[in-house]
Amino acid sequence: MIGRLMTMSAEPGKGGELAAVLLSVAQRLRGFPGCEIYLISQDAADPDTVHVTEVWRDDASAQAALAASSRAGGPTPGDVVALLSSAPHRTDLIVLGGVGLPNADDQP
């Protein structure tokens, strides 16, 4: 499994709108093959900062979801970028397991 932590800074006052767009993306990912976790969080101290925590079966699943979102008629990556004040920060992770992950016992 792979993971990503995305930190996004919205234009001032647009954090709620950014979070809403990302929650719409999350809704479309329910049941998407390979998507284990897609969690949207807003920073308690700075509501214009939004975090996305992702866990995917593999990179191919993450890439397939990105491609599908552009064709599904919902929010696109461009819709997200339009709300940002700067480029998102992405941290790639190797997921080791934990609570809430299916088959967490199968992880190395």
Results as ranks from 00 to 15, higher is better:
P12I: 09
V52Q: 00
Q42K: 12
D58K: 02
G98L: 07
A64I: 01
R28K: 14
V99H: 13
L18G: 00
P47A: 11
G31Q: 13
L39F: 05
G15H: 05
P102G: 08
R57P: 02
A62D: 00
G97K: 10
P33I: 02
S41I: 07
R90D: 09
Q27H: 13
G13H: 06
D92N: 10
C35E: 07
E11C: 04
R30M: 06
V81C: 06
E11W: 05
W56I: 03
Q27G: 13
R30P: 00
I94Q: 11
W56D: 00
E54T: 06
I37A: 10
V80F: 11
A68P: 00
C35K: 04
R90F: 14
L22F: 01
H51T: 08
M8R: 12
T49N: 12
S70G: 15
A104T: 15
I94H: 09
L23F: 04
L101C: 09
W56H: 05
P47L: 06
R28G: 12
D43Y: 00
R71S: 10
V55H: 04
K14H: 15
Q27V: 03
V80I: 15
A26H: 05
L5A: 12
F32E: 13
L84F: 11
P108Y: 04
G74H: 06
V99E: 13
A67R: 15
R57M: 01
D46L: 04
C35R: 04
E54R: 03
D106W: 03
D46Q: 12
V50L: 09
G13W: 07
S70N: 13
L18Y: 02
M1V: 08
A87E: 14
F32P: 02
D43K: 01
A60P: 02
A104D: 12
E11Q: 14
G34T: 06
S85C: 03
S61I: 02
I2A: 01
A104I: 03
Q27L: 11
D48V: 05
E54S: 08
G13M: 09
M6E: 07
H51D: 05
S70E: 15
G16A: 13
L84Q: 08
A68I: 01
R4G: 10
